[in-house]
Amino acid sequence: MLRFTARRLLHAVPLLFGVVTLMFFLLQLAPGDPIQALIGDYPATPEYIAQVTEAYGLDQPLLVRYWEYLQQIFTLNLGESLAGRVPVADLIADRLGNTLILTVTAMTFAAIVGVAVGVWAGVSRSRTLDHLVTGVAVGSLSIPMFWLGQMLVLIFAIKLSVLPSQGMYSTRSTAEGLDRLPDLLTHLLLPALVLAMREIGVVARIVRTSVHDVLTLPYVETARAKGFSRATIIRRHVVRNSLLPAVTVIGYNFGFILAGSVLVETVFGWPGMGQLLYESIRNRDNAVTIGIVLLIAVAVVVVNLLTDLVYGLVDPRIRAGAGAGGRA
């Protein structure tokens, strides 16, 4: 397991490096003045421009700037927001928690529902159910996530008035501490559902296929030869092994959820990173925009790494470094 972990880590580090480099060159590619690209269209005083030029070493050659940029990034210095002259890192840190509440809820939700539906469809011999799951999965991949959010707001908040449509907490609520939980949950329900929708479809489909496949494997026949009932076989020998590919999919798709949260937060006025990103785009506050995307990319690399490690934990073959099949 130790060697496995080391190997995965060794894989992740250059990837992070690559992402940062990509961001750097993207900035260089911006049309016109690099300062303008960095500070966007925000009106800036000449002193401020001089200050930024100095700070970013924009009068230096490309490679030197690259080196400086790397140093900044790895000291978590993401620059300053031009709108508020606040460090970007602070701005993001303020919002990160809210985004995590939303995305982690969505991911958990997707995992539970997706696995349940997938196993159900996989063990059932009903073709109709199979088609239904496939249909819903393809549908959820084709639907614009933010529009689905709009429709749910339209139905549940505007027409039926049963759920709130905006924000994390009701403005009128006076509750404190844990008492705010019910209020939070009602606000969380719709955005988390929308965010989970796509992953539910993806996970359900993978698990379904995987259950189908595992059911034909020889060791399932061994279990049958032991005299076990179908239910026992499914519970003990099929489900667990069918979940292996789901682990990968759920983990690797965290990036989709994170990126999707930008859209969903905008629809639901959820005060997270996505909303910050939306504002930064509107204000052409590029330092913030880049900071957030960089963070998303880093989060993906880290979550992928964790996924590999979890996979190693649940699949003894990988752990041993045998590297034998099983991964989709």
Binding site: L15, G18, V19, T21, L22, M23, L26, L27, L29, A30, P31, A37, G255, F256, L258, A259, G260, V262, L263, L277, I281, R284, N286, T289, I290, V293, I296, A297, V300, V301, N304
Partner: peptide, 20 residues
């Protein structure tokens, strides 16, 4: 892999935001 590890929407978004 570097391009793939950034979610496609985030990558497209940052490029358009920076380039116009």
């Amino acid at each position: 892999e570097v391009f793939q590890v950034i979610p496609s929407f985030a990558l497209a978004l940052i490029i358009v935001a920076v380039l116009g």
